[in-house]
Every structure is written in C-alpha cells, then in structure tokens.
Computed example of a mutant assay.
Amino acid sequence: MVDIILKKAKEKAVLQRHPWVFSGALAQVKGKPQNGDVVKVLDADADFLAYGYYNDQSRVAVRLLDWDENAIINEQWWKAKIEAAIKAREHLQNNDTTTCRLIFSEADYLPGLIVDRFGDYLALQILTSGIEKVKETIVHTLSTLLNIKGIIDKSDASARAHDGLQTQHGTLLWGQLPPEFVEVKENGVKYLINILEGQKSGFYCDQRDNRKIVASYAAGKNVLDCFSYSGGFTLNALLNQAAAVTAVDSSALAVETLKKNIQLNQFDEGKVIAVQSDVNKYLRILKEKGQTFDVVVLDPPKYAPSRSSLDRAARAYKDLNRLGMQVLKKGGLLATFSCSGAMDIETFKQVIAWAALDAGKEVQIIYQFCQPEDHPVRISFSEGEYLKGLFCRIY
C-alpha cells in the first residue's frame, strides 16, 4: 500500500475526522498509486493517521475511509458500511413511503457514493474514482441485501469530471431496466418517477419532511409552487385540501409528470394550474397582474455550487425571494429553500432580510427547514449540510 506523507501541521483536519485531504496538504507520495487506490495517510513524522483512496486529478487528493490502523479495506469492509447505512433507514420505508436515500456519501462513511431507492429500483450516483473501482462489490451487495428488480447508474454529476471520470446516464448495472415511469409513495402521496430521464437520480426525497410541514398550512389556501418539478409541494398541498395550486417549472417533462401525478392520486385537476415557464419571469408577470397567494414555495436549483459563486448566488436568491414576497398576501406564508452547500443558514437569513428590504416587507421566521434523516449530517463534515430553508410570515 502506498504511503501519503502530509506536510508538517497539515494533519489537524484528519485528526478531527474530516474526510477530505486536499492536494496542497501532501508533502510526498511514496510510489505511484492508480487513481482510486486505497492508500495510507501519514503525518510529517510518518505516524499513521488514516486510510483513504487517492486521486491525483482531484483537488481532494485523498478521501478518507477509516482511522483505525488495524482496519482492512477489502470487500467485507465495503459490505459492512453499505449494510449499516441500509439498516439505519429501515424504519423510513413502509406502506406510505417507498422511496428514500439509502446511502449519502461522506455522511455514511462512503465518500463518493449516493444510492436512492424508488420502489423496486435503485439509482446510483458514483462520483469518484475510488467508488468506481469497487462498483461491482457495491452493486452485488445492494442486489443481495435488498428485494429489488434493477439497479441503474445515474452518475451524470459534473463532480465526476474532477476525478477524471466520464458521466454515465441510465446505464443498467443489475437486473432489469425500469419502465418509463415507476410508481412510488411518499407520506401517502403517489408519484410517477422517471428514473432514466429525470433530474439527478429521478426524485428529490430530501424535501419529504418539509413538504408535509408546508402542506399542513395549505388547507383552504391559494398556493404558488415554484420550481415544482414532479409536484412534491403541489401534491401534498392538494392532499391537505388546498383551495388551488399554481405550479411553475421550466421543464416540459416536469410539467407533464406533475399532471400525471395529479391524475394518479385522483386529485381535482380543476384546482391546479400547471405552467411551463422561467420562474422569475412568471413571478414578474404575476406581480404586474396584481395576483397574490396565501402560500408561496420557492425551491430553486443549486445557485451556489462553490464558495466562489456565493456572491452571484446571493443576488439570485435575493431577487427570487423579493419577487416571491411581492406576490404574497399580507400575512401570507413563504417557504423558501437553498440546496447550495456553500451557503450556510445565517447567510441565507441575511439574503432573505435583503429581499424583504427591497420588497418593503416585514418578515417573521416561524420555522427553520433542514434535510431529513436519510440525509444525515456527519459532525466532522459540515459540508454535508446542504439543504436549508425558512418558513416565514410576510407582512
């Protein structure tokens, strides 16, 4: 096994169990490891720190796996970690919920691996060379542990490029390909998921708890669901007897899927206006018309993929939330989210404060949203805490 020697005083983060070692912290690589090979990380005095896997093309040169020098990173090690992650989610899967995230990368001590379950099918995102190297072990373990029909590779994230990997999109890894739409349930609501063509792994199960909370305020209300995708907030609002919902998304496939999901749940189609449009443009149209809502949901895509884009993202979040506030009735509710890991909750609060000043509104925060338990946050890896949101009353 190749030894990686760190520069003097660069071992602190490793000792604190942070799972990333950046290339700038490396003093010496003793040998020529292949990308994805397991290596031994040592401090400047050649004392053992941890095991991890290496990549010379990535800014994160080593992703750490185990801090026990007696550990053996073999097939059994990988199987044990996968089994532990799945077991921790068993209670989340029942007759009312058949979809959840089974493995969440660093948070489950499996950096670079994301696994989502959609009923009888799994969608994998393999983001690093170290996980790519043990893909067969991972697929075999998952197919053995779970009663499923197929495993699909959805490794189309741009993160793979940082490890010198090509993207994969909808490749069958095991079993059979899913049909065009797979039916799942979440909190009793039915969804048709397009695993092969849908965004990311096919469905955003990280908003499961937040959808339920927002919907509990929707009875008899007129709701605007922006970036509605396949209808998570819309369908939950309808389940809780919303008077009407306007759902807006720029994707034709998303709007089509939303309509299918309304029919699938036998909700009143007359209560829903599904709009294919750029959200900011549509909000401006609503403002010009003087149309207002009781509840507005803003769940945009990731505006800040990195810290370098944070200033630009903050302006985008501010403009979006200003427009959202302007189409709310006085005393109405705004559920606003950011899935940008680079933006922490305090910065997000400041952005909302700026938006309120520009809109001439007063804001009360009545609830703070976060990601659900199948997206845990590892205490030594704050970067895993990406989803945050605020539930606000706007005056």
Rank of each mutant, 00 (worst) to 15 (best):
G220L: 12
G341Y: 13
L173G: 13
K81N: 11
Q263T: 11
A13Q: 13
F381W: 09
E90A: 15
L127H: 04
R312I: 09
I138Q: 03
Q176D: 12
A50I: 01
A123T: 10
L328T: 00
V62Y: 08
D120M: 08
N280H: 10
P301T: 03
L253V: 08
A44I: 04
Y191N: 05
P300W: 03
L145A: 10
T137N: 13
T141R: 02
V351K: 11
K87M: 06
K212M: 13
R284D: 11
A71S: 15
P33V: 08
V139P: 13
V272W: 08
E180N: 13
D206M: 00
K81F: 02
D66Y: 08
E197Y: 04
D278H: 06
L146Y: 04
Y217G: 02
E385S: 00
L173Y: 13
A85Y: 02
V29A: 04
R315N: 12
F369E: 02
V245R: 05
D68T: 05
D56S: 06
C226I: 07
M1Y: 14
K135Q: 09
L328H: 05
S309K: 08
I285V: 13
K212T: 12
E346P: 12
A314W: 07
S201V: 11
E362A: 02
V41E: 00
V363Y: 01
L235Q: 02
V184P: 05
F203L: 10
Y121V: 01
S228C: 04
G360Q: 01
V223Y: 01
R17Y: 13
L390Y: 12
L334R: 00
H140R: 08
G188P: 14
Q326N: 10
A247D: 10
Q28R: 11
W78L: 06
M325I: 01
K349A: 05
G31F: 12
Y121K: 00
A237I: 07
T347C: 10
R322F: 09
L238F: 00
N236P: 03
P300F: 11
D43R: 06
N94C: 03
F104C: 03
N261R: 12
C339Q: 15
E136W: 00
K30T: 03
D116A: 01
V214R: 11
A237S: 12
A80D: 07
A254K: 14
G202P: 00
G150W: 01
R208N: 09
